[in-house]
Write a protein that binds this DNA or RNA. Structure first.
Lengths: 343, 343
DNA sequence: TTGAAAGCGCTAACAC
DNA sequence: GTGTTAGCGCTTTCAA
């Protein structure tokens, strides 16, 4: 049964009007209708153009994106992979990506990896079916596993641009985790802290390693010492659990807790409260990222500002611009009340 | 130039392998390959099936979703509209939707309305081009404007399911804002509060109106009085601004501030601190939603728990299940330290 | 079971 | 300028 037949069979109820319908109603050819509605500018006589536009309007025509994509061989989508969309870190990145995509009339699809590399690879494979213009990987915060990088090259071979927060893709959004953490460490030492406990992720997780190494370098360089390192993950509960453990092990007054992210730091703050200790002069806490909630906890969190939303926007630009160079995204140490001066 | 010609012209470099390639390599027809790889189960001889699968594997074949969509007339996507993906309210909903979509192998596309009804309508129109299986509207927190509802019916006519947090769609996810707020108001009155200030959104915004009306009913029913209502929006900064204004107007000690959402409440908390006042015995604050940060501020925020992520999941189910009925999502009043007993 | 062939809705040569 | 027509990659009758 042809589309035509099917359409009249149901009296055209429930079927989306096609370009064909518009062309027929306007009394022009398919090609002309296509040129007016979706094709490149300037080529159609004004009178025709008007007729087509009116017909489209009356029919409520909207181009079928899938059909356009198969015909053109490319689809207007940018795929974004995040670990957890409810985490403000990723939420901010996603907001930046969405803003850019919107500017260009592109659609962004979001997939959640739950920080599971297997899932990540699987999703990537499925995403390939969308033949997206670009893929942005903000998921692992880790060096991208081998299988993931295979998938990434598969994308590249299809002509899609791959961008990663980290390595392994065509283009990388780099965050100077090490440098920022080092400045933070130095600043904390300068403010009189001498003992620090670090809350990190598993050894080998790049972001965590860099932040930890940077902090340690800066802090010891200023005369401090990182006395213990607890390892768990990136979630708030991980921070709470690690801190709980640390408290069980004993935390001297005046110790600084350096958490690898604000979210983790906030978990730590909660554990400190639960233990009846207090944040600040008793146990100081510093995080990383400067997500909005770091200003909403009491005391406000000392942290390193990462312009996440802006970086998301840049990541988007990186997927679409032919020429591209990452703009400078300087990280700034922000000292707040969670780390009072000890000098 | 045919695909064949093009492919050999570039030595097949850079082109995605097509079903055609797989079929050729396996020595079977297109139809058979399709049946094995993407079609319905059970129909192909085991030997053929194996050959096809091996060929697909070796070629690294992934079905082109757009082509499948044009051929099938339906695409495996669920479109989600949110006001602001960096807002935890929407982040949680999105997480629930994403979880459900993943279970069904569907893709979710996200669009941001920025709380602009015009944008919302425009986006909806563009989204229609994707011919998504379903659309979830979590954007306006408002009664859906007329144009929006036109777009929604257009979707429905195409056979797509529309689901809204609020009214105007095929199916609605309802949050008992009024009831929850009423219980909160009653509880606050029972705990000895007598004067309240409300921080709401513009008059006519449904969620805000319901929460405000509910709270007022419960609070006055318990002997309290809502002395002033400030109106702005749903963002943290709106809460800060409204609270600032309230403080300028004068806020008696022992007053309760009821904010229409936790995010707004947190803005208010920040304004209270900035003004050198304190949250709790001095000025009490209650919010709504129970987003994670409500437990991370000090003092922790009294609020009404809305199972946002779960509701996101339900919204997803509502788009895909033929039979559907909203599961009970009871709202629970959670009293925390931001509203100490005054009795 | 399998395969040939006619679509799906749209784009883009190419000719008029 | 405009229309014809052969694709895009895939699905799905319909015969064989």
């Amino acid at each position: 049964m042809t589309a035509e037949a099917r359409r009249s069979a149901r009296g055209n109820g429930g079927a989306a009007p096609t370009l064909h319908d518009v062309a027929a109603k306007a009394g022009v050819s398919l090609a002309t209708a296509s040129r007016v509605l979706n094709g490149s500018e300037r080529k159609v006589a004004e009178s025709f153009r008007e007729r087509v536009e009116r017909a489209a309007e009356e029919l409520g025509y909207t181009a079928n994106v899938s059909a356009q994509a198969t015909a053109r061989g490319t689809s207007p989508v940018i795929a974004l992979l995040v670990a957890d969309i409810a985490d403000p870190y990723f939420g901010l990145i996603a907001a930046g990506v969405a803003r850019g995509a919107d500017e260009q009339g592109l659609v962004v699809t979001i997939a959640i990896t739950d920080r599971d590399p297997t899932r990540e690879t699987r999703i990537l494979r499925a995403l390939r079916g969308q033949r997206p213009r670009g893929v942005i990987l903000a998921a692992s915060r880790d060096d991208n596993a081998e299988t993931t990088s295979d998938e990434l090259s598969a994308f590249a071979r299809l002509g899609g641009r791959t961008v990663a927060f980290g390595d392994g893709a065509d283009r990388s959004i780099r965050i100077d985790n090490r440098g920022g953490a080092e400045r933070l460490g130095a600043e904390m030492a300068a403010r009189g802290y001498r003992r620090a406990i670090a809350l990190a992720a598993a050894d080998g997780v790049r972001t965590s390693d860099d932040r930890l190494a940077g902090f340690t370098a800066g802090f010891t360089g200023g005369g401090g010492e990182v006395v213990r390192v607890y390892r768990s993950g990136f979630a708030r509960e991980d921070g709470a659990a690690s801190m709980q453990q640390a408290l069980d092990d004993g935390v001297e007054q005046g110790t600084l807790v350096f958490a690898l992210s604000d979210v983790v730091a906030i978990g730590a703050v909660s554990a400190i409260h639960d233990a009846g200790r207090s944040v600040g002069a008793d146990i100081a806490v510093a995080g990383f990222d400067d997500v909005p909630v770091s200003r909403d906890v009491t005391p406000q969190l000392t942290t390193v500002r990462v312009p996440l939303s802006e970086l998301g926007y840049q990541a988007f630009r990186a997927t679409v611009d032919s020429e591209w160079e990452q703009a400078d995204a300087p990280l700034e140490v922000i000292v707040r009340a969670s780390t009072p001066d000890r000098t």
